[in-house]
Every structure is written in structure tokens, then in C-alpha cells.
Computed example of a mutant assay.
Amino acid sequence: MTDTKFPPENNLPAGYEPPKVWTWEPGNGGQFASVNRPIAGSTQEKERPVGRHPLQLYSLGTPNGVKVTIMLEELLAAGHAGAEYDAWLINIGKGDQFGSGFVEVNPNSKIPALMDHQPKDGGAPLRVFESGSILVYLAEKFGAFLPTDPRARTEAMNWLFWQMGSAPFLGGGFGHFYAYAPMKIQYAIDRYAMEVKRQMDVLDRHLAEHEYMAGSEYSIADMAIWPWYGRLAMKDAYNDAGDFLSVDEYRHVQRWTKQIGERSGVKRGSMVNRTSGDPSTQLHERHDASDFDTKTQDKIAKA
């Protein structure tokens, strides 16, 4: 029987009809086909490295990874010496996230993941996964960047969870279909472009009346949102997406983006586990504060 509501000839690709039961084929997923799969668990035995600091981060310099390295660098800049950390590179393009050691830290096989070898309760090493959970964990461990006033704290948490729920529309939705999908699908691009512009307007209206996301106090909410929406505002995401989405019109987001981007902790945190862009701003792994001066990739290349 012909589907009159969704005639197959109008589908993309033309003639496609969803089967009664979906089955996975290795070619599914476009450029991510080599690492995408519909099951969890490890695919290889690979020991997880452990450095000399209590905090061991396993990550990549994506927006979700940058949230955590910004937080750690901000903690160190604020004088919290216990926040010293090792940041190990997890190359998701090569499937490092499916190594057995990493899966022990994050059964969901996503970066970032953190092991705290000196948790506050003095017990066994504690794993923390999901970027928002890591931010809250570190804020509570060190008593920093999360307001203590109940109203301001609630506002920070509101915006942290807003980001966690909204960013998939930006990255997995708009970013995927605009920059990574194997074909341009107008419906998908229009759908997610509209939503991302709505989200940018939400931020712009809020930042018109507040210096930071939680009010007058810089917090983990700013650290969570800036790598996603600040990067978009700087036209540093998904090829020419900044122009496509007319990000210059969000002037309050632009003000906030520049203000956050000038912080030393943000600058340093944005370099860690980064593997693309200007080589002088790439620090594939971070094991000591001196690495920023001695081990950026351009200096290694010239050594």
C-alpha cells in the first residue's frame, strides 16, 4: 500500500522506506561510521594510564571536554593547589573511548571522564562521568564556582542543566546535519537552525540583564555554556555556521563571550587535549602547569 502522507519518492534518499525493524550496518553513520555502533561496552583491552596527580582526566578538546579543563584551570588560578591534574588524550576518532580502561570510568564511552584518587571521604578512587556531573563534583569538592546562596545556586544549576539539555540540538542536531552528514537535508538543517537560533535568543535575553549566567557571579554554568555557544558566537564552530546563523546579532552573547574568553583559566583550559586548529594552541596532554610553555605541539615539532 502506498504511503500517501510520506510518499517514498519524496524521501531522502528518494525511495527510502523505513523497515519494520531497524538493523545496524557497518556503513551507517557517515564519517563516524568507523566508531558508531548500537551497543555499549569495550571493544579492546587497553589499560588506562594514571599520572602522579589525584585528579586524572580522560578527555578530548571538544566543547564537553573543554568545560572540565576550564574548570580545573580556573580552580588552579584561584589557588586550589589540590586541583592539579593529568589530562590524557582520548582520541574518539580512533575509538579510544572503547578501550576497557576507559569504559571502566565511563560505561557510556563518552568523554570527558574523571577519576579522583583522593576523594573527600578518603575511600577508594571515585569515578565521575558526564561533563555536568564533573563540574558539580569539582565545585563541591573545592567549594568554588558554585554560589552558596540558595537562589544564586539554583540559578547556576538551572543554566547548567539547560546547557546539558540544549547542546545536543546544537551539536548532534544542527552541527551534524550542517557540517557532517553525508548529504544536505534541508528539512533537518532548517529544523535545527531554528532551534539553535531560539537558544541563542534565550541566552541573549538573559545576558541583557545579567553579567553572568547565574547573575553577578561567574560559575560552572558559564563554564558549561561558553565552549558550546561562545564558540558558535566566535564563528569557530561547524565551518561557516556563525555567518549562516547570523550570530553577530546576539550582542549580549557577544559581550559575554568576549568577557569569558579573556580569562586566563579559560584560555589555558581551551588548549588542553586539543588536536585541531592552530598548533600553538594545542596541548595534546597536560601533566604539569609547565606543559603550556614547553609542550604545545608547535614547540614539540620544532624540538
Rank of each mutant, 00 (worst) to 15 (best):
M1H: 06
M1G: 14
T2V: 12
P8A: 14
L12N: 01
T23E: 12
E25H: 08
G29M: 10
F32L: 15
S34I: 02
P38G: 06
I39H: 07
A40D: 02
S42H: 00
Q44N: 07
R48V: 03
P54A: 03
L55S: 13
T62A: 10
V66E: 00
L72D: 08
L75T: 01
Y85R: 13
D86Q: 06
G99L: 05
S109I: 07
K110I: 15
K110V: 15
I111S: 00
A113E: 02
G122L: 04
G123T: 03
G123V: 07
G123C: 02
P125D: 02
P125Q: 02
L126I: 05
R127T: 13
S131W: 05
G132P: 03
I134C: 08
L135Y: 00
V136L: 13
E140A: 10
K141C: 13
P147G: 11
P147A: 09
P147N: 05
T148Y: 03
D149I: 13
E155I: 08
M157K: 06
L160H: 03
W162S: 15
M164C: 09
A167P: 04
P168H: 03
L170I: 04
F174V: 13
G175C: 05
Y178G: 14
Y180G: 10
A181V: 02
P182A: 05
I185H: 04
I185V: 12
Q186A: 15
R191H: 11
Y192N: 15
E195T: 10
V196G: 12
L203D: 08
D204E: 09
D204Q: 09
H206E: 08
L207Y: 00
E209P: 10
H210T: 09
H210K: 13
S216F: 01
Y218S: 12
I220T: 01
A221G: 07
A221E: 04
D222L: 06
D222R: 00
I225Q: 06
W226M: 12
W228R: 04
Y229I: 12
G230I: 01
N239S: 06
N239C: 05
A241H: 00
A241E: 00
D243K: 11
E249N: 09
R251E: 14
H252T: 09
Q254V: 10
T257V: 10
T257C: 14
K258C: 09
G261K: 01
V266P: 09
R268L: 15
S280H: 04
H284I: 15
H284P: 14
E285I: 11
H287Y: 03
A289D: 08
F292I: 14
D293M: 08
T294I: 12
T294M: 09
K295N: 15
D298Y: 00
D298L: 09
K299M: 14
